[in-house]
Nucleic acid binder design. Structure first.
Lengths: 200, 200, 200, 200
DNA sequence: AATGAATGAGGGTTCATTCAT
DNA sequence: GATGAATGAACCCTCATTCAT
């Protein structure tokens, strides 16, 4: 029945949202499953119909929220007329940073709990009907006027740098507040991109 | 009495070592204080004479182990005749990476539990009788033949990049196994350093 | 409709078989009704259409399996030409023991769960269309060349002794492995039978 | 400290007694550990300082209570002047039966939960400072005027028969109430003993 | 200083049973 | 008749922390 499936989906989403809010406010360790179900207004056992345990829902949340961040940034990018891979990537980074600056709890949640293994496994399980952000990136690279070598490595390096440095700069204002660090970050991003260009 | 103080210090170290081994093998969440004291051969109450709680000892361990890594790398560097800040920094990174490649549990422990806030607070509490690695770095920068601007930013960027990218490359062989990623990493490090040079 | 009734019967049997296998492999306490219905391929609610609860199906299983054991033994006996109540009873005991020796899980299931009350109530509820083993025994006694007194008591004593001693000897090889204990058991069975004979 | 050890022993005994009463009245499955500790007036965690789980305390209780039964019977026997192994054993059986007839819950508890494996392992772990009942039996056999062969087997057979037949006769009055079954039981016991005598 | 018995709140998980579809 | 999502009571067990000795 469509009605039942709809109900199930709604229930899963309610649990998702409840867990998200609690994780952000109280942190994962201090959030009990009983908190989640209480907030969601379902029985405890119901939780286990949809998720294996607390870490299952956490992993799925991280994937979801990370995708959301990229998705929103990409959408915004598409509405601008920006040419050049470097400017495009920096736009995306900028967009995500700006989002996280005003949502520190989300930044904390994603970064502190980002278990690459978990992320990877979920991303590769094909549960994602959306086009991967990975493919999105590849597209952007392809459509650039330059040719690039070792695209994987380039993207990885940029993501790691921006993620790690951004996290600390936003959160601890060290070595500089993020606004002041941005120029350095972006300069380095450009250097990395440039170093992967195949020059005629 | 010197003897009593010695005893106290030894007891603290035993707890330290026990906790370290357990954290590496079982992980922090699965390590109970009772495990630590049992392995250390002291009573439960004794733990609280030396540490506030599990996270207190964890933070101190991370600082200690991180310092050890840098210290060993610096020692090795001093025994080589390497000139040039870039080569020196890359030597240190190389040394630390090589250490962690054969000690994955340590890599995991440091990275997964690295709470910058905690690290920072401990580093600044002046409990460190050793010279800071930070000062060590500054020295290296000063003694280079080039002049640098925004040294803080430069070091921060390098540390974040090497740390984050190294962690994933070592652990997940993605986007490449660490040995194959090293050239890219070092190239980027050189670019970052170069971009901070004040050119006459 | 015969078809519907047939369907119902098949469903009940599927549940029966699933429960049986699970009880043998995992034990009763560790077998959940959800396990049973999953293995049987029916919905949870369906279980309750046929059985009151886990213990209902367990009791019925024990009766069923015990009857099977006796039935098979009796069938085998009928194909031999054995005269004399003692040899006949010992043949049956021997047959059952030999069956259980190679089916320890069944032995465990029957003995550990043999709740006389349950057995009795089910046996007497007239659900048994087969001729009772009790009557079968009585027949055997009647047809013997000797006369017996207190037949009920005699059978009871033999059954209890063989059941209890057999169970432990098979399972724990104590005080002797069953093969070595058999002579003693059978000697005692003969003594019991003899002591109930009415001697002219 | 003697005081602390005394306290510990008292606490363990309190738990023991509470569990015993609850097991008898409510049955094991329906007795929660929280019931036991509540009745004992200690905290939940305290239970786990003394017992591994519910089945640990159950096993120890069964051993304890079974020993008590035999011990009391042996004491009573020692105060009578009974000669002859057969009369002695029957006295003990009689004593135990009479105890259990007026303590059906105990009969149920011991018999329904008697896990031979557990019993054996506990009995053989040497935790028993008392002389084993096994040795007690051997003594009785030795001091009899007759010689016996296969003493182990003899005792085993008697114990199994008396235990199993007695249990059903007491509990279900089948095939006869225990008082009427006793003559048959004792006759069989005598037969078994006689069959193990070495006759000159 | 050192001990370790005792605590008891707290969290995770299971599962028999129901009932709307 | 059959389904299976939802329930929520029940229960086990852990473990950080305390405090009398």
């Amino acid at each position: 029945m469509g009605k039942i499936d709809e109900n199930k989906k709604r229930k899963k989403e309610t649990l998702f949202n409840s867990a998200y809010e609690l994780f952000l406010t109280k942190g994962i360790n201090s959030t009990a499953i009983s908190d989640i179900v209480e907030k969601a207004g379902v029985a405890k056992g119901t939780f286990y119909l949809y998720f294996k345990d607390k870490y299952d829902i956490r992993n799925k949340l991280i994937v979801h929220k990370t995708q959301e961040l990229f998705h929103a940034a990409k959408l915004a990018l598409d509405q601008e007329q920006i040419a050049g891979l470097d400017d495009q990537l920096i736009f995306i980074i900028e967009h995500i940073i700006n989002t996280l600056v005003v949502n520190i709890p989300l930044l904390n949640f994603i970064s502190k709990n980002l278990v690459m293994g978990a992320l990877r496994s979920v991303l590769l399980t094909g549960e994602n009907t959306d086009r991967d952000f990975y493919e999105t990136f590849l597209d952007m690279v392809c459509q650039d006027s330059y040719e690039y070598q070792d695209v994987d490595v380039m993207l990885f390096t940029i993501v790691e740098l921006a993620g790690s440095a951004g996290y600390n700069s936003i959160l601890y204002q060290e070595p500089l507040p993020i606004e002041q660090y941005k120029p350095f970050l972006y300069r380095t991003v450009r250097l990395i991109i440039d170093s992967h260009r195949i020059k005629a």
